[in-house]
Design a protein around this nucleic acid. Structure first.
Lengths: 128, 128
DNA sequence: GCACATCGAATGCAAGCGCATTTAATTTCT
DNA sequence: AGAAATTAAATGCGCTTGCATTCGATGTGC
């Protein structure tokens, strides 16, 4: 595992790129078409849905979605506009916010979850 | 390898996402900072530099960069604006084009390649 | 206690993306 | 050969992204 040749490194990277592109674009496609959710939106809902009290700090979300802080902030704004989450002030540190999933958000996540899993099962193992 | 549980699938996907994000953003960062190239631009140059006569069809490029046809077209436009490639008419099929790497393009690719490899070596094996 | 650095989040902005459409060239069908 | 379908690439458009900056709140040093 250590002294990988340069060529092997590049091949591994290209494999990773291709794999990511395949799964990501299939997910994007189907989640959007069937549930009106982007991959990042789904990941955000998944984090929230499986968190205690369905809430988390803005930063936790940023870490999960692999997006910049600003993009994550706008992602929350979009979800809020769609009625899937709410932003609530954080009393202990009033710079921060809590993002809380709504009932509607839970429902959309629950609906989208089977689609998500099925796309993973289909695309994650090379049968494209 | 067959009857993977749902949980395992999700973990595998999250791993892939994290891995991709780590390597891709490090690459983007360093290639941009040190050579003024995006990851896709580098991949395009790499394909061209290792092709016969340093040229290929627009479509071959589209396949390699994991971008939509329109995005790939604009990518070529950017590279051309930067003097790294040229578009030439294809005589046999005049709908198509050839994308040809320039001397300047070869140089930039050659300069960027060590950076690219070094980032891969550093980030591809989890030592992030 | 007060100035100063730091932090969490929001926002202006330019750039890149995908989708849908367009344009022009080629293939297919009859 | 001619009309219709298909293909390669380019472009208009709206949306998302990251970077840099801003704004308010929190923490730190003296």
């Amino acid at each position: 595992m250590k002294g990988r040749s340069e060529q092997e490194l590049v091949e591994e990277w290209h494999g990773l790129l291709a794999r990511h592109a395949t799964v990501h674009s299939a997910l994007e496609q189907e989640l959007q078409a069937e549930h009106g959710l982007s991959v990042s939106e789904f990941e955000a809902l998944e984090l929230l849905a499986s968190s205690d009290h369905g809430k988390c700090r803005g930063q936790d979300l940023t870490n999960v979605v692999h997006l910049s802080q600003s993009a994550a902030s706008r992602l929350v704004a979009r979800l809020e506009r769609g009625g899937l989450v709410e932003r609530v002030m954080c009393d202990l540190d009033r710079r921060g916010i809590f993002v809380v999933i709504t009932d509607e958000g839970h429902k959309r996540y629950g609906d989208a979850k089977p689609t998500h899993r099925s796309v993973l099962a289909r695309t994650l193992h090379g049968e494209d």
